[in-house]
Design a protein around this nucleic acid. Structure first.
Lengths: 181, 181
DNA sequence: GTCTATATTTGGATAGAC
DNA sequence: GTCTATCCAAATATAGAC
C-alpha cells in the first residue's frame, strides 16, 4: 500500500519503486494505475478522508465533539502509521510547490471552523458573536494535537497525547466560560 | 545560504545544486567544505543553535521563561524562514533513518524539562513533586507552538501564534494553580 | 492490465586540474 | 580552496510487448 510508504518516508523521500514493492507490483504498474506520483498522493489522501468520514457519520456537537478529539488522539496512539502520515505530509506541504498544499490548507480551514463551532456550543455562546477568543482557542486545540504527534513519534514513552490534549481543552474551556461572566 | 534552501524545501527535497547556486559556488564546492549533505544539515542545525543561544545568555525562570516563549512566537511571525526550517525538519525527522532524528529527540527532551521546570517554578510547587500534570502541561505548551507554526505557514492571516500560545499557557497555569489548592 | 525495457533527468559524490 | 569533468545510482515517466 502506498499509504504505508508515504507514512514511513514522507512524500519527497518515498519512491514509486518502494511503493510498488510493497504492493507486489512493478513500478510501471503503479504508474499505469495512477498517472503520476502527485496523483497517487492525492488518491491516498482522498482514500483516507473517505475511510475516516465513514466512521463518523454525524458530527457530534459541542462538548461531545471536543471529547471526540481526545478519543481520536487516544486511538492514534495505536496507529503510528497514520499519525506519521499526517504529521510529515502536513509539514512538508508548507514547502514551495508541494502537491498537498491546497489539501492541507482546506483541511485546516475546515478543522478551525468545526472546532470553533464546538467551542461556542460548549460555552453556550450560541452564534451571538464571532469571538476572537474562540478562534484563538480553536487554533490552539488543533495545534496541540499536531504538535503532540511529532513529539510522540520521536519519543512515544514521554508523551501522552490524549491526556495532554484533554488538559488543554479543559483549561481553555474554563477560561472561556470564566471571562465573559 | 544552505539554511534558506532547507527551509524552503526541507531536507529531502533540497538539492546541493540549489544550495550551491544560492551561495554563489558550485555544487562540488559545497561538498568540498561539508563532506556530505548529511554533515551540511548538521552544520546548519548547529549554527542555528549557536546563534540562538548567544541571544539568551541566561535562561529566565518561572513565569519569565513562559513569557519568553510567547515573545519568541511573536518574533517568529517575522521570521518565516526559520519557522519553516524547524517545522519541516522536525516532522521529517520522524521518518526512518532521517539524519536529524537524534538532534530533534534531544531538543525536545531539553525543551520538555525546561518548560516543566518553569511551570513548577511559576506555580511555586518547588521541586517537591514530579507532578504528572506538570509534564502533561509542558508537553502541551511545546506542542501548541509547533502546531501553530504549521497552521501559520499555510495560512498566516488565520493564525495569531503569540496570542494562541499565550492563551494556552495562561489557561494551563490557572488549572495548575487551582487543582492543588 | 501488468509486464520488460528504456528514455530522461537529477541527485550525491569523487578525481584531478588550476 | 574552488573549479571542471565525470561517475554512479536512483528517480519519474513512457513505449510497447504479452
Amino acid at each position: 500500500m502506498a499509504m504505508d510508504t508515504f507514512a514511513a518516508r514522507g512524500y519527497n523521500n518515498a519512491s514509486l519503486q518502494e511503493i510498488a514493492d510493497r504492493a507486489g507490483v512493478t513500478q510501471a504498474g503503479v504508474l499505469h494505475y495512477f498517472r503520476s506520483k502527485t496523483l497517487l498522493l492525492a488518491s491516498v489522501l482522498q482514500l483516507r478522508d473517505e475511510t475516516d468520514t465513514d466512521q463518523d457519520l454525524e458530527r457530534p456537537r459541542g462538548l461531545a465533539f471536543l471529547h471526540h478529539l481526545v478519543d481520536t488522539m487516544r486511538r492514534n496512539a495505536e496507529r503510528e502509521g497514520i499519525v506519521r502520515l499526517y504529521a510529515v505530509l502536513s509539514a512538508e506541504s508548507t514547502t514551495e510547490g508541494h502537491p498537498a498544499q491546497e489539501y492541507f490548507r482546506e483541511r485546516y480551514e475546515n478543522l478551525r471552523s468545526d472546532v470553533a463551532a464546538a467551542l461556542a456550543e460548549a460555552c453556550e455562546l450560541g452564534e451571538v458573536r464571532a469571538d476572537v477568543n474562540i478562534d484563538e482557542a480553536a487554533n490552539a486545540i488543533i495545534a496541540v494535537m499536531d504538535g503532540l504527534q511529532i513529539q510522540w513519534l520521536l519519543a512515544p514513552g514521554s508523551v501522552d497525547m490524549a491526556a495532554s490534549t484533554d488538559r488543554v481543552i479543559t483549561a481553555l474551556l474554563a477560561e472561556l466560560a470564566d471571562k465573559p461572566a
